[in-house]
Design a protein around this nucleic acid. Sequence first.
DNA 1: TTCAAAATTCGATATATTCGATATATCAAT
DNA 2: ATTGATATATCGAATATATCGAATTTTGAA
Lengths: 298, 298
Amino acid sequence: MRMNTKNLITFKTILEMGSFQKAADKLGYTQSTVTFQIKQLEEELELELFEKIGRRMELTQAGKDIMPYVDMILQGAEQISNYGKSLSEISGTIKLAIPDSILIYTMQPFIQAFRHEAPNIQLVIHSLQAGQIIQAVMDGIADIGINCEKDNYPDTIIHNNLGTYRILLVASPFMDRGLLDFVTPHQRKPFSLICNEPDGYYQLEMNKYLDKKDIVLNQYMKVQSIEAVKRCVMNNLGIAVVPSYSVEEELKNGALIPIKTELDEKIYNAIYVYHKNKWISPQMKLALDLLIKLKADC
Amino acid sequence: MRMNTKNLITFKTILEMGSFQKAADKLGYTQSTVTFQIKQLEEELELELFEKIGRRMELTQAGKDIMPYVDMILQGAEQISNYGKSLSEISGTIKLAIPDSILIYTMQPFIQAFRHEAPNIQLVIHSLQAGQIIQAVMDGIADIGINCEKDNYPDTIIHNNLGTYRILLVASPFMDRGLLDFVTPHQRKPFSLICNEPDGYYQLEMNKYLDKKDIVLNQYMKVQSIEAVKRCVMNNLGIAVVPSYSVEEELKNGALIPIKTELDEKIYNAIYVYHKNKWISPQMKLALDLLIKLKADC
DNA sequence: TTCAAAATTCGATATATTCGATATATCAAT
DNA sequence: ATTGATATATCGAATATATCGAATTTTGAA
């Protein structure tokens, strides 16, 4: 059961960098040293970690399976090396999975607060689509996920409320007001629905509403970013479904106007999730604390 | 953040064995090697681990504080070295803290089942007095504690029901039946109360009862073991307070007779406890599973 | 086939670990 | 204060291990 962190770090670096050579470069070893270290690690663990698929090194199943324990060891080592240091000095990494829209419009205060409290902790943000957040947390790709509320969660996931929002339809103030009745059923609208992710959560919620009402729009128009969506709507190319927090500014200054729907009353929750079995490191605790603070502030 | 399990194991062994020399003997090093390894570990961690108090090496506060992380690392390493092995092959240690009486009379099926399921896991049993069990679990001396139910627990302790028992007064069948009225108050009894631990939980419960009833016995008689208590009672040297499970056999074959008290109706719970923040290793999970099975079986 | 990229092998050498002997420190008994 | 027993520290030599660099192998792509 002899083992050292040096070899484990080399192992993790190979996975991170994608090759022995790059890991060697990053860690300041020669390639042969990396080969030697991995060979030694495999002997120590009595496991094959890599198999050659062509000239690519692929992690074996055993290699994947022991990852949580490798992380456990490196986490333990990290905590020891942080011992006695204040929050502002501790290092480490915390990985968040956040949908783009939430990241842009509501996470800025969190990110600033985090960087301020712990400038040496690397904050890695994976900007994923809403449907992938939970999976990322389950796979350990992210430590904390932030998302729209869902109905059910795997029981390995802990989820907590983070804040509320509404789903809105918005239009340009230059749009003919007569066309903006989205309450009366059975209508055909002569303009497009502009969206960013056609399968996004907000979009799907609104589609359900429109289907129920039998309100049909001209056609879908897909653009790259949520910013682009707003630009298109402002230029009166169509209307869009957006979460309330993303258009607060524009509604206030009149660049966009809200369209009344029966979804206006409905309140949605944003949540944060993390893995139940995960050990909550001080780094992670800080992130969770700041999320709760963010919630209290707004 | 370079670190190796070898040094950490040496570190833990010193704590376990109580001296550098004994750790060296156990691990097959010379004493100077142990000194060197600890010095090296202290340099790696940038922490003082021991301080000399006279000719004794005492763990520093930092040394105590990092213990959970040292354990985290060694647990991780242990899990990796157990990877792919079946339950019957995995090794490791699980430490139980159990009061003597419960150990002798009710834990035998558990111990046998455990040894059968996982013969390579070292089952270390600390036989402690009831009052020390919770503390042992809090201090990490034991992974799981078994005890009589108490009213309140620190919130770092998880406690679950394990089974029920009663507290009995027992006497020899040769005892004058006329003297065995322990229900009517205000009596003086011309025989001794024999006990093993005068401060034991059963004893204290019964004392409360006797005080309330104002029933006074001749004198206390303290003997070494619970077996000795039973022998003395069988030889009619006095009566004793015992938990029901410890005298089932003797009551059935008539070697002891129960004395009726108003405590007969009261049902006590045996419980098992473990530390809330502890990572539940497969070894520990097996032990917990077997305890639950034991409960179901009786 | 040939080239380039990536991993392995192997000998030389620097570095780290361990041992054994000895020195030092502490406590307790005299 | 002296002495003996016990415990840890120090140091040099022997041994073991890690790293590098050069040569070699493997493989996918041109």
